[in-house]
């Protein structure tokens, strides 16, 4: 297959970026999007004759390449993780594009995700939110006997749905407001549904929301672009869960969390 790639190239956060157009051919329809970029980079490194614009390889994030690590994330043709629904960039296949198509590749755009280079952005803000309370602060030791903490099936299912979040940041990238509500909603909900997470649920939602605000993410306007683009298809019902937990926490808590 042949493609025309318009890729955002930017040397560092401070320099001015621009789109560079690369023509690439001889791509298997079974290769993944990242494998296609690997081939582009190999040709750039080899200074291959087929590459019209020589230069240094394109930087992009990737790790597990099986859709579970949340490292890859490209804004492809106006959509996070490209045109396929419910997959990450690494699991997007080139057969989803028409032969000869022009593909525009951009990094995630958000104030909270400063650009590092080319298509790589700094998603530390999401980790900062987790550090604010996205954990259970007791030593759990090794796995306990499973039946000692009864968890109803439907709650286990809900918690698992929320826990599917891989923290790739596609929700922020897709959101017209650059809001991280789906991410925080999922991270708040997957613990709040379970007995182990309940004792700290109120404090957790307050401090995570506070840090989310401080990181410079936008406000939710219920556009639900996040739900549509989430590679793990996490539902906005988890945002509602966070909203009501937050409301409850603010009404019931005795003292504000600093």
């Amino acid at each position: 297959m042949k493609f025309t790639l318009k890729i955002w190239r930017q040397n560092d956060a401070k320099s001015k970026g621009k789109f560079v157009t690369y023509k690439i051919d001889n791509i298997s329809s079974d290769s993944s999007f990242l494998e296609m970029l690997d081939q582009l980079n190999q040709r750039l490194i080899n200074n291959d004759d087929s590459i019209s614009v020589p230069g240094c390889p394109v930087h992009y994030d990737h790790d597990c390449r099986e859709g579970i690590c949340g490292m890859c994330g490209l804004y492809i043709n106006g959509r996070p993780h490209g045109p396929d629904k419910g997959v990450t960039t690494c699991q997007l296949h080139m057969r989803k594009f028409k032969d000869g198509a022009t593909i525009v590749i951009e990094p995630w755009r958000a104030k909270a995700f400063p650009l590092i280079r080319d298509l790589v952005v700094d998603r530390t803000a999401l980790d900062t939110i987790i550090q604010a309370g996205g954990y259970i602060s007791v030593k759990t030791g090794s796995a306990m006997e499973a039946n000692s903490t009864p968890v109803p099936k439907h709650l286990a299912e809900k918690a698992m749905d929320a826990a599917a979040c891989i923290g790739c940041g596609a929700c922020v990238a897709a959101c017209p407001n650059g809001s991280a509500m789906l991410f925080v909603g999922a991270k708040v909900a997957h613990m709040a549904y379970l007995p182990q997470g309940k004792p700290e649920a109120m404090r957790r939602v307050q401090s995570m929301v506070k840090v989310m605000d401080d990181c410079g993410f936008g406000n939710c306007s219920n556009a639900y672009a996040c739900e549509y683009e989430c590679p793990k298809e996490i539902s906005v019902t988890h945002i509602a869960k966070m909203n009501r937990d937050f409301l409850q926490a603010n009404l019931m808590s005795e003292k504000e969390i600093a």
Binding site: K6, W8, F19, Y75, N77, G78, R79, P80, V104, E106, R109, A110, K111, A112, A174, P176, N177, G178, S179, G216, F217, G218, N219, S221, N222, A223, Y224, A225, Y228, E229
Partner: peptide, 29 residues
Amino acid sequence: ILKLQNWRSRPKGYAVTGKTPTSFFSRYM
């Protein structure tokens, strides 16, 4: 306030936009 903050939260926009089907009503509130 919401709108100003939301604009501020994405200082540099995308070249290709409007491909995600979102609530038309939400965008234009």
